[in-house]
Protein backbone atom coordinates (compact mmCIF):
# COMPACT_ATOMS: atom_id res chain seq x y z
CA UNK A 1 0.00 0.00 0.00
CA UNK A 2 1.38 3.40 -0.97
CA UNK A 3 2.79 5.32 1.99
CA UNK A 4 0.80 8.52 1.41
CA UNK A 5 -2.52 6.92 0.58
CA UNK A 6 -5.13 9.41 1.75
CA UNK A 7 -8.38 8.52 3.49
CA UNK A 8 -10.46 8.95 1.47
CA UNK A 9 -8.31 9.36 -1.62
CA UNK A 10 -9.96 11.99 -3.81
CA UNK A 11 -9.33 11.74 -7.55
CA UNK A 12 -10.83 13.90 -10.28
CA UNK A 13 -10.75 12.78 -13.90
CA UNK A 14 -11.62 15.58 -16.27
CA UNK A 15 -11.93 16.19 -19.98
CA UNK A 16 -14.40 16.94 -22.73
CA UNK A 17 -17.57 14.95 -23.44
CA UNK A 18 -16.66 12.09 -25.77
CA UNK A 19 -13.10 11.66 -24.47
CA UNK A 20 -13.99 8.70 -22.29
CA UNK A 21 -14.16 10.20 -18.82
CA UNK A 22 -16.88 7.82 -17.67
CA UNK A 23 -14.89 4.78 -18.73
CA UNK A 24 -11.74 6.03 -17.01
CA UNK A 25 -13.58 6.48 -13.71
CA UNK A 26 -15.30 3.12 -14.14
CA UNK A 27 -11.92 1.47 -14.57
CA UNK A 28 -10.64 3.15 -11.39
CA UNK A 29 -13.75 2.16 -9.43
CA UNK A 30 -13.66 -1.44 -10.62
CA UNK A 31 -9.97 -1.76 -9.75
CA UNK A 32 -10.61 -0.24 -6.32
CA UNK A 33 -13.33 -2.81 -5.57
CA UNK A 34 -10.99 -5.56 -6.85
CA UNK A 35 -8.56 -4.34 -4.18
CA UNK A 36 -11.24 -4.61 -1.49
CA UNK A 37 -11.73 -0.85 -1.11
CA UNK A 38 -14.95 1.10 -0.83
CA UNK A 39 -15.57 3.52 -3.65
CA UNK A 40 -17.89 6.36 -4.60
CA UNK A 41 -17.89 7.93 -8.05
CA UNK A 42 -19.81 11.07 -8.92
CA UNK A 43 -20.48 12.06 -12.49
CA UNK A 44 -23.19 13.04 -14.91
CA UNK A 45 -23.89 11.82 -18.39
CA UNK A 46 -26.47 12.75 -21.00
CA UNK A 47 -26.39 16.20 -22.52
CA UNK A 48 -23.29 16.88 -20.42
CA UNK A 49 -21.43 14.51 -22.73
CA UNK A 50 -22.23 16.56 -25.81
CA UNK A 51 -18.95 18.39 -26.16
CA UNK A 52 -19.16 20.04 -22.73
CA UNK A 53 -16.72 20.02 -19.81
CA UNK A 54 -16.97 16.77 -17.89
CA UNK A 55 -15.48 15.63 -14.63
CA UNK A 56 -15.72 12.47 -12.59
CA UNK A 57 -15.07 12.45 -8.87
CA UNK A 58 -13.61 9.16 -7.64
CA UNK A 59 -13.28 8.61 -3.89
CA UNK A 60 -11.48 5.53 -2.64
CA UNK A 61 -11.61 4.52 1.01
CA UNK A 62 -10.35 1.58 3.01
CA UNK A 63 -13.52 1.19 4.99
CA UNK A 64 -16.04 4.02 4.77
CA UNK A 65 -18.84 5.02 2.41
CA UNK A 66 -18.51 8.57 1.14
CA UNK A 67 -20.75 10.81 -0.92
CA UNK A 68 -20.06 11.16 -4.65
CA UNK A 69 -18.78 14.75 -4.59
CA UNK A 70 -15.34 15.94 -3.49
CA UNK A 71 -15.34 19.17 -1.45
CA UNK A 72 -13.69 22.26 -2.94
CA UNK A 73 -9.91 22.29 -2.64
CA UNK A 74 -9.82 18.65 -1.54
CA UNK A 75 -8.59 16.75 -4.64
CA UNK A 76 -5.45 14.67 -4.10
CA UNK A 77 -5.07 13.69 -7.72
CA UNK A 78 -6.32 15.40 -10.86
CA UNK A 79 -6.06 13.49 -14.13
CA UNK A 80 -6.80 15.67 -17.13
CA UNK A 81 -7.56 14.41 -20.62
CA UNK A 82 -7.46 17.98 -21.90
CA UNK A 83 -5.30 20.93 -20.73
CA UNK A 84 -8.00 23.63 -20.48
CA UNK A 85 -10.34 21.35 -18.53
CA UNK A 86 -7.51 20.31 -16.22
CA UNK A 87 -6.88 23.92 -15.37
CA UNK A 88 -10.58 24.58 -14.89
CA UNK A 89 -10.83 21.76 -12.32
CA UNK A 90 -7.68 22.89 -10.53
CA UNK A 91 -9.25 26.31 -10.10
CA UNK A 92 -11.91 24.82 -7.81
CA UNK A 93 -10.45 21.60 -6.45
CA UNK A 94 -6.68 22.05 -6.13
CA UNK A 95 -5.45 22.02 -2.53
CA UNK A 96 -2.09 22.19 -0.84
CA UNK A 97 -0.99 18.71 -1.86
CA UNK A 98 -2.78 18.09 -5.14
CA UNK A 99 -0.89 16.14 -7.79
CA UNK A 100 -1.68 16.61 -11.46
CA UNK A 101 -1.25 14.39 -14.50
CA UNK A 102 -2.39 16.16 -17.65
CA UNK A 103 -2.61 15.32 -21.33
CA UNK A 104 -1.11 17.98 -23.58
CA UNK A 105 -3.51 17.65 -26.51
CA UNK A 106 -6.01 20.51 -26.87
CA UNK A 107 -9.66 20.03 -27.70
CA UNK A 108 -10.95 23.42 -28.83
CA UNK A 109 -14.26 24.80 -27.49
CA UNK A 110 -16.62 26.17 -30.12
CA UNK A 111 -16.01 29.68 -28.82
CA UNK A 112 -12.31 29.28 -29.62
CA UNK A 113 -12.98 27.82 -33.07
CA UNK A 114 -15.37 30.63 -33.88
CA UNK A 115 -12.89 33.25 -32.74
CA UNK A 116 -15.11 34.53 -29.90
CA UNK A 117 -12.47 33.45 -27.36
CA UNK A 118 -8.78 32.59 -27.51
CA UNK A 119 -7.60 29.10 -26.59
CA UNK A 120 -4.73 29.59 -24.13
CA UNK A 121 -1.26 28.46 -25.06
CA UNK A 122 -0.68 24.90 -23.79
CA UNK A 123 2.73 25.75 -22.29
CA UNK A 124 1.11 28.66 -20.43
CA UNK A 125 -1.59 26.35 -19.10
CA UNK A 126 1.01 23.86 -17.90
CA UNK A 127 2.80 26.72 -16.17
CA UNK A 128 -0.44 27.88 -14.52
CA UNK A 129 -1.21 24.30 -13.43
CA UNK A 130 2.29 23.96 -11.96
CA UNK A 131 1.65 27.21 -10.09
CA UNK A 132 -1.40 25.64 -8.46
CA UNK A 133 0.20 22.26 -7.92
CA UNK A 134 3.97 21.91 -7.65
CA UNK A 135 3.67 18.28 -8.61
CA UNK A 136 2.35 18.57 -12.15
CA UNK A 137 3.26 16.03 -14.78
CA UNK A 138 2.47 16.44 -18.47
CA UNK A 139 1.82 13.23 -20.36
CA UNK A 140 1.51 12.87 -24.13
CA UNK A 141 -1.52 10.65 -23.52
CA UNK A 142 -3.00 11.03 -27.00
CA UNK A 143 0.34 10.21 -28.60
CA UNK A 144 0.70 7.10 -26.43
CA UNK A 145 -2.91 6.18 -27.22
CA UNK A 146 -2.19 6.43 -30.94
CA UNK A 147 0.78 4.15 -30.36
CA UNK A 148 -1.51 1.71 -28.56
CA UNK A 149 -3.77 1.69 -31.60
CA UNK A 150 -6.37 4.46 -31.21
CA UNK A 151 -6.40 8.13 -30.28
CA UNK A 152 -9.59 7.38 -28.35
CA UNK A 153 -7.67 5.30 -25.78
CA UNK A 154 -6.08 8.38 -24.15
CA UNK A 155 -8.44 7.81 -21.21
CA UNK A 156 -6.95 4.39 -20.48
CA UNK A 157 -3.41 5.73 -20.94
CA UNK A 158 -4.20 8.29 -18.27
CA UNK A 159 -5.54 5.64 -15.90
CA UNK A 160 -2.30 3.74 -16.51
CA UNK A 161 -0.36 6.86 -15.56
CA UNK A 162 -2.41 7.16 -12.34
CA UNK A 163 -1.68 3.51 -11.60
CA UNK A 164 2.02 4.18 -12.14
CA UNK A 165 2.04 7.23 -9.87
CA UNK A 166 2.43 5.18 -6.70
CA UNK A 167 -0.33 7.21 -5.07
CA UNK A 168 -3.15 4.70 -5.43
CA UNK A 169 -3.68 1.84 -3.01
CA UNK A 170 -4.06 -0.37 -6.09
CA UNK A 171 -1.62 -2.61 -7.94
CA UNK A 172 -1.23 -3.30 -11.62
CA UNK A 173 -3.01 -6.65 -11.08
CA UNK A 174 -6.16 -4.94 -9.77
CA UNK A 175 -6.30 -2.87 -12.95
CA UNK A 176 -5.64 -5.84 -15.20
CA UNK A 177 -8.48 -7.67 -13.47
CA UNK A 178 -10.71 -4.60 -13.95
CA UNK A 179 -9.80 -4.43 -17.65
CA UNK A 180 -10.71 -8.08 -17.85
CA UNK A 181 -14.10 -7.41 -16.22
CA UNK A 182 -14.98 -4.42 -18.38
CA UNK A 183 -13.72 -5.31 -21.85
CA UNK A 184 -13.61 -8.18 -24.29
CA UNK A 185 -11.68 -9.18 -27.39
CA UNK A 186 -9.78 -6.60 -29.40
CA UNK A 187 -11.11 -3.70 -27.29
CA UNK A 188 -9.62 -5.34 -24.21
CA UNK A 189 -6.29 -5.77 -25.99
CA UNK A 190 -6.28 -2.13 -27.10
CA UNK A 191 -7.12 -0.84 -23.63
CA UNK A 192 -4.59 -3.12 -21.95
CA UNK A 193 -1.88 -1.86 -24.31
CA UNK A 194 -2.93 1.74 -23.61
CA UNK A 195 -3.02 1.14 -19.85
CA UNK A 196 0.45 -0.41 -19.80
CA UNK A 197 1.91 2.35 -21.97
CA UNK A 198 0.57 4.95 -19.53
CA UNK A 199 1.78 2.96 -16.52
CA UNK A 200 5.28 2.46 -17.90
CA UNK A 201 5.52 6.06 -19.05
CA UNK A 202 4.69 7.29 -15.55
CA UNK A 203 7.09 4.89 -13.86
CA UNK A 204 9.83 5.93 -16.27
CA UNK A 205 9.04 9.59 -15.59
CA UNK A 206 9.10 8.92 -11.84
CA UNK A 207 12.63 7.52 -12.05
CA UNK A 208 13.95 10.63 -13.79
Amino acid sequence: MAPDFREPLNIIVTGVGGQGNVLASKLLATAAVEAGCRVAVGETFGVSQRGGSVMSHVRISRSKAYGPLIPLGAAHLVAGLEPLETLRVLGSYAGVDTQVIMNDRPNYPLACLSGAAAYPDVAEMVKAAAGLSARTTVIPASELAARAGSLLAANTVLVGALAGSGLLPLCREHFLAALDTLFQGSIKELNTRAFLLGLEWRQEEGRQ
Binding site: V16, G18, V47, R50, G51, G52, S53, L84, E85, L87, R88, G91, P109, L110, A111, C112, A117, A118, Y119, P120
Partner: peptide, 9 residues
Protein backbone atom coordinates in the same frame (compact mmCIF):
# COMPACT_ATOMS: atom_id res chain seq x y z
CA UNK B 1 -10.77 30.83 -19.33
CA UNK B 2 -12.85 30.10 -22.45
CA UNK B 3 -16.19 28.48 -21.61
CA UNK B 4 -17.05 25.21 -23.26
CA UNK B 5 -20.52 25.35 -24.71
CA UNK B 6 -22.41 22.15 -25.46
CA UNK B 7 -21.94 21.12 -29.06
CA UNK B 8 -23.51 18.69 -31.46
CA UNK B 9 -21.02 15.87 -32.11
Amino acid sequence: MPVREFALC
